[in-house]
Design a protein around this nucleic acid. Sequence first.
DNA 1: TAAACAGGTTTATTATATAAACCTGTTTAT
DNA 2: ATAAACAGGTTTATATAATAAACCTGTTTA
Lengths: 99, 99
Amino acid sequence: MSGSLQNISGLDRVIHEPARLILMALLSSVASADFLFLLKESKLTKGNLSVQLSRLEEAGYLEIEKTFRGKIPHTEYRLTKKGKSAFDLYRKSLGSIFK
Amino acid sequence: MSGSLQNISGLDRVIHEPARLILMALLSSVASADFLFLLKESKLTKGNLSVQLSRLEEAGYLEIEKTFRGKIPHTEYRLTKKGKSAFDLYRKSLGSIFK
DNA sequence: TAAACAGGTTTATTATATAAACCTGTTTAT
DNA sequence: ATAAACAGGTTTATATAATAAACCTGTTTA
């Protein structure tokens, strides 16, 4: 493989999946976000969103903070340091296809 | 979805898959290539390469020209116009995550 | 008090990537 | 002459996964 392209085979699959890529991009642009915000911005279904967020959490890319706002549960999602650097690396790796 | 990110959910899955993304990138940089060249450059296994090339052909993204070199069959793969513009569009769509 | 909604989670279905096994013909070594 | 190795693939089997649909628990509104 002639150099830069080799990064692509090692592309982080957790991030590469479009549903999660959108979430990572969204989350990287804000300090934190709640479920409804992500639901609306990503246009994913609730179920899909929930699964993908769990997957990102398992990977250690985001932390989930569950609190209450009055009586209603409220959850905030935010990228971890690990998540941020994984996303940075992902973007660098992908850079090779943009010449 | 706040504008540019929406392109990502519509990302061309045929191209998005890393194995095929490598092939598209390779093929977009040459006029045509044969199986062995792609095998070596992509580092895919033969089986996987064969399947992915078929998938790209089905999508109309590449054409396969089978000839003989003396007695040995020789196959050349090259991107179609459709393949080239699909790859261009893919890169544009992905551009949104690079700010 | 019933219906609707917020905020999710779990389950089931379908698709898919990948490697491994296989195949056909050719060339090389013995 | 014949066996072994190789070119150039294709087919099959397996395992992972994305996604939507169904479900759940509690709260608010009519």
